[in-house]
Structures are given as structure tokens and as C-alpha cells.
């Protein structure tokens, strides 16, 4: 199903395709469980993510989206196959701090102010204090949180907390941004707003994003490619190119092109019997 065609719509025209930022070959991961019935979370996953892509992983819950993201981030060890991140093993990539990870929950440390939360990765990297602060301010401004530097996480709304956690991931200045359903717990209005924000951010920074979601509209709106996954065992059903213009507004969701791609995604999910139960 998934043809490894590197020539897709991207900003680069006529230039040779750059080396993939993530490359997985027949990747599999089996979780051992206490009751001796191991769970196959990933099975024979082949995936190539090119630089500058915005790739969404979509599928019903339990299909291994989080697991795949965690394998890329070296938070989980695959039990079979191979994977490289920036040409390195995931562990090497993690130790070189090549990615930023946005978790499903904001995971801000409650004893730190918003600003000091964003400074946390920079502290660990040993960046001097003045620069730490400047970078934290810059990233907070980027996600629209200027003026909230001195607030504590629990004084912010859920959407603002999640934006702070995105700023924290951005503070590392990674080329690769891994996001696990960052807006899953938010209401639709906040979510639309943050989606718009995210697509502008992606366009202006040229980062590569891997984005987990189970919302078709969100996936189509944000992505350049959509990876459709299916559970039991977790595998990739289809990879759909999403060749809407890179510059996107919320109105694009009313266009026929948008509807056509959403339809393909829905068909892909159907094929995997995602709607069976």
C-alpha cells in the first residue's frame, strides 16, 4: 500500500530529495504482559518521513500510534526491525537531543513557573542563564503566552498549559517535533485555534512534525501526509498524500479538496475495520 515515493509535494522544487529524518523498516514491538498474552502494538511498520514533512498518525485508539512515536523518541525499544532518526539510532538521537516531544498531557512541573518550565530543557543542556531566559521568552511569545511567564501551570487553562508544553519542546530548537494527541483533551474551539497556530508555526519554522491524532479533520488540516493505522496488530494501512497548499486557514476545511482527502482517510480507516465495533 505504502509506496516509498520520495518525490512528493514539498517546498523544494527540482532539488534532489533530502535524506529522510525518520526511517523505519519492518518495525515491530510486542509488549510482554503479566497474564502472558503479549500485545503486538506494532507489526511490520515501514515508514519514511522526509525533512519538512508534517506527518499525522491516525487510527482508532490502541492501534499503536503512541507506541510508534515513543519508539522514534527512544522511550520504547522495538522488538524487531530497524529504525533510524536523522541517520542515527533513536538512542543516539535522543542523547543528542534532536527531537522535542509534546505529550498527551502538558506534564508541566507544578513547582516551576511557566517560564521556568520552558527553561527546564535548556537548564539540562547547560545553556547559560541569560540565554535560557531569552529563549524561553521567545518561545512563549511564539505560542502566544507572553505575559504569563510568572504564572504557575495550575493558574492557566488547559489550552494554555498545552501551548506552554509546546513552547517547552520548541525551546530545544529541534528539527523534529513529536506530538502525541496534544489537543486531545481540549474543546473544539480551543483546538481549532491551536491547530491554526500550529500550522503557522510549522510553516514559519520549517520543522518536521509527527503528529498523533484520532481526528480526521485535524489530520487533513495539518498534514502533508497522513498515515492511517489499524489495531490488532498495530500496522500501517495506507499513507495518504495531503497536497493542500502549505498555507492554510480554517476555511480550507469547507473546500472539496479537503473533503476528498478526508474521504480517503475515512475509507482507509474503514478498510482496517476500524468502525466494526
Amino acid at each position: 500500500m505504502h509506496s516509498p515515493s520520495p518525490s512528493r509535494t514539498s517546498g523544494a522544487t527540482g532539488q534532489p530529495a533530502p535524506a529522510p529524518i525518520v526511517q523505519a523498516r519492518s518495525l515491530s514491538l510486542v509488549y510482554p504482559t503479566a497474564d502472558n498474552r503479549p500485545v503486538t502494538a506494532l507489526s511490520e511498520v515501514d515508514l519514511t518521513i522526509a525533512r519538512g514533512d508534517f506527518v499525522s498518525l491516525i487510527g482508532p485508539s490502541g492501534c499503536g500510534k503512541t507506541t510508534l512515536l515513543r519508539v522514534i523518541a527512544d522511550l520504547e525499544q522495538p522488538t524487531g526491525g530497524s529504525i533510524t532518526v536523522e541517520g542515527l539510532t533513536p538512542e543516539q538521537a535522543r542523547l543528542k537531543r534532536l527531537y522535542g516531544y509534546v505529550f498527551q498531557a502538558p506534564a508541566l512541573y507544578p513547582w516551576r513557573t511557566v517560564e521556568r518550565n520552558v527553561m527546564l530543557p535548556l537548564e539540562i543542556m547547560g545553556i547559560p542563564r541569560a540565554e535560557r531566559q531569552a529563549r524561553a521568552r521567545e518561545e512563549l511569545q511564539r505560542v502566544g503566552l507572553s505575559g504569563f511567564e510568572r504564572k504557575f501551570p495550575w493558574q492557566l487553562s488547559g489550552g494554555m498549559q498545552q501551548r506552554a508544553s509546546i513552547a517547552r519542546a520548541l525551546a530545544l530548537k529541534p528539527d523534529l517535533l513529536l506530538m502525541d494527541e496534544p489537543f486531545g483533551a481540549l474543546d473544539e474551539i480551543t483546538r481549532d485555534h491551536l491547530n491554526l497556530h500550529l500550522t503557522q508555526l510549522w510553516r514559519s519554522t520549517g520543522k518536521t512534525c509527527v503528529f498523533v491524532t484520532h481526528s480526521i479533520a485535524e489530520a487533513v488540516f495539518l498534514s502533508t501526509r497522513i498515515v492511517v493505522m489499524s489495531p490488532r496488530p498495530g500496522r500501517i494501512l495506507d499513507v495518504i498524500d495531503c497536497d493542500l497548499p502549505r498555507e492554510r486557514t480554517l476555511d480550507i476545511r469547507e473546500s472539496p479538496e479537503f473533503a476528498a482527502i478526508a474521504h480517503r482517510v475515512r475509507d482507509g480507516l474503514k478498510e482496517g475495520h476500524s468502525y466494526d465495533d
Binding site: L75, R97, A107, Y109, P121, I124
Partner: peptide
Amino acid sequence: AERIQLDLMRSYAAGYGR
């Protein structure tokens, strides 16, 4: 400490002491 908070530290390649 919650797992997600620990994972965050791991993603920053923070060692035991940090």
C-alpha cells in the same frame, strides 16, 4: 514522580542525578 514527567526527563537525555 509520574511516568510522563520521567519520560520528559528522558527525552532531554537527563541522567540520574539531573
